[in-house]
Nucleic acid binder design. Structure first.
Length: 520
RNA sequence: GGCCCUAUCGUCUAACGGUUAGGACAUCAGAUUUUCAAUCUGGUAAUCAGGGUUCGAUUCCCUGUAGGGUCACCA
């Protein structure tokens, strides 16, 4: 349990709602969550939507839905902070948990207060330089091999001068007065000791104006206000750390612990990006990756428990996770392994659960309606029959499935009326058309003799296999039959398929195959 | 270009000075099998280079090389 002398661990996930949730963001989120939970601490969600132009509510909504799907819940939010009961109607959406997320767009007053404080004590100042001038200066500095920073032209403007410019309505921004010749050294929990020189930072812009604070500033203020103890974030923020530490010092805040985790890389070893294919979590969700598989896989990108155990549930991850075991180097996103893990979890799913999960894909492909109507007509018993039928079909493909979306191309044969395939597919090795016709007729004959009510694997297998053994090769009987029933190169076995298809449809498809041979 | 970070099989990684450098995915071969999966067995495959330190370096230090990140009135 938490010792009252040790400060409580509080982590945060701070995405900006400017696009789909990136797979790298997900990992940052996961690590923050795991660490907080393991330490019996708290994990908060903070939406960094200070950029009003690029931030869209739909992206925040997507994020919340993703977190719900993954069951990563945050521990507090504005409803708690205000000490009042949370009323979802006050907000723009219905939340899954008791708290809304923090939103930086709703915290402007807080930033303003600190901005005024810095302006008053001289750790920040108004700058009236034009963007063009600043940009030109940077280009010049770069060309002579120096750090491209703002050199501080407005740094020591007199008070009256500032007020005059402000009164004239001159364009301005608020800059941080970065201390000169100052070494910033901090101990990163993953990288170890890292050192920066303040001279290469320059006087960064911390706000457009009093009401529009910018990232480096809002982060520092919020992390202090929210009492964040550990900042776990992507490596790309490592160079932001010294800026933020300087701001923390200027504001007299407490410095949190930093842990910069390595990036997830594409096959080209560059930061995973759109050119590498799917990078957003929704893409994986839609493709039919299970949340537990995605979490298991993502956790192992750049982290491992130090043992040979590789299959981990969320609870097990919480138990075994440690920042010390996080890798220093970036990790290439290896989709093959994700597929393998996903297939593993799919095979482990109870059949009924899997069937339920697969239904939306079949519905979307338009496969279910017709079949349902047919079944209801025959049995007249409703949805249960349909579900049982689906279960039967899904069972045949459970161990072949790597992702849920694949179910459509695998089982469509059970739902469509006619199959379309090339006649050549029916040929097993060196079979001639004569052999083929004979084989299919044999199958037809055998299957015709079985009563519709006994048309199942137990009854079909013995006689079908008996006949198959009489052939030069079992495949001579079974391959053409299987193709006739499925129209596919690969599928589950013909006997199971015949059972699922039912007698009538099975015989019908054999006839169609014979017809196809005759036509060509 | 400045600054910062990184470097073990193709990929994810283990080995916190002494191992035949281990595991997983992928791949290859075999078993099983009507096909494809699944499953089982086995194989191929790695310490970036050069210097140190040490009896001994994947491991510690330096240099080089390569890769990456970052340098917005984005986050």
């Amino acid at each position: 349990m938490v010792n009252k002398d040790t400060p409580i661990v509080r982590t945060r996930f701070a995405p900006s709602p400017t696009g789909h949730v990136h797979i790298g963001s997900l990992r940052t989120c996961l690590f923050n969550y795991l660490y907080a939970k393991q330490k019996n601490g708290q994990y908060v969600l903070r939406i960094e939507d200070t950029d009003a132009e690029r931030s869209k509510f739909e992206w925040e909504h997507e994020l919340i839905k993703i977190l719900e799907w993954l069951q990563i819940n945050w521990d507090e939010g504005p409803a708690l902070i205000n000490g009042q009961k949370f009323n979802p109607d006050d907000y723009k959406m219905d939340y899954v948990g008791p708290y809304a997320p923090y939103r930086q767009s709703e915290r402007k007053d807080i930033y303003k207060k600190y901005l005024q404080q810095m302006l008053a004590n001289g750790t920040a100042y108004y700058c009236f330089c034009s963007r063009e001038d600043v940009e030109a200066e940077k280009q010049y500095l770069m060309s002579i091999g120096e750090a491209p920073i703002y050199k501080g032209k407005c740094r020591d403007l007199g008070r009256s001068e500032v007020e005059q410019c402000l009164a004239q309505g001159k364009d301005s921004v608020i800059r941080f007065k970065c201390p000169l010749n100052h070494k910033i050294i901090f101990n990163d929990l993953i990288k170890g000791e890292v050192e920066f020189d303040s001279n290469i930072i320059g006087d960064i812009v911390i706000a457009k104006d009093l009401d529009n604070a910018l990232y480096n500033f809002t982060v520092v203020v919020d992390d202090e206000e929210m009492k964040i103890s550990h900042i776990i974030r992507g490596d790309e923020h490592l160079s932001n750390a010294p800026k933020q530490i300087l701001l923390i010092e200027a504001l007299g805040f407490k410095q949190p612990q930093y842990a910069h985790i390595p990036l997830i890389l594409g096959p080209d070893k560059k930061k995973l990006s759109k050119r590498d294919g799917k990078t957003s979590v929704v893409d994986y969700k839609d493709a039919g990756y299970l949340p537990e598989a995605l979490i298991n896989f993502i956790a192992f990108l750049g982290w491992n428990p130090g043992t040979e155990k590789e299959i981990y549930s969320m609870d097990e991850l919480i138990k075994d996770f440690s920042l010390e075991k996080i890798q220093k180097a970036g990790a290439i996103f290896n989709i093959d392994k994700l597929d393998w893990i996903n297939g593993f979890y799919i095979r482990k799913k109870p059949l009924a659960d899997l069937t339920e999960m697969v239904v939306p894909y079949l519905e979307k492909a338009g496969l279910i309606e017709e079949k349902a109507a047919e079944l209801y007509e025959i049995k007249n018993t409703g949805e249960e029959v349909m579900f049982n039928y689906l279960e039967k079909v899904v069972a045949l493909y459970q161990e072949r499935l790597k992702k849920l979306s694949e179910i459509v191309e695998m089982v469509d044969l059970f739902f469509v009326k006619d199959l379309a395939y090339e006649k050549e597919l029916l040929n097993w090795k060196e079979m001639t058309d004569v052999d083929l016709v004979e084989s299919l007729k044999k199958s037809h004959e055998i299957l015709s003799n079985i009563d519709e009510n006994n048309f199942n694997k137990d009854n079909l297998e013995p006689i079908l296999m008996e006949q198959a053994e009489k052939m030069p090769n079992r495949g001579n009987l079974l391959w053409p039959l299987r193709v006739a029933l499925t129209g596919k190169k690969n599928s589950a076995g013909p006997i199971e398929i015949a059972e699922a298809l039912g007698k009538e449809k099975t015989l019908q498809r054999i006839d169609s195959a014979l017809q196809l041979i005759k036509e060509t």
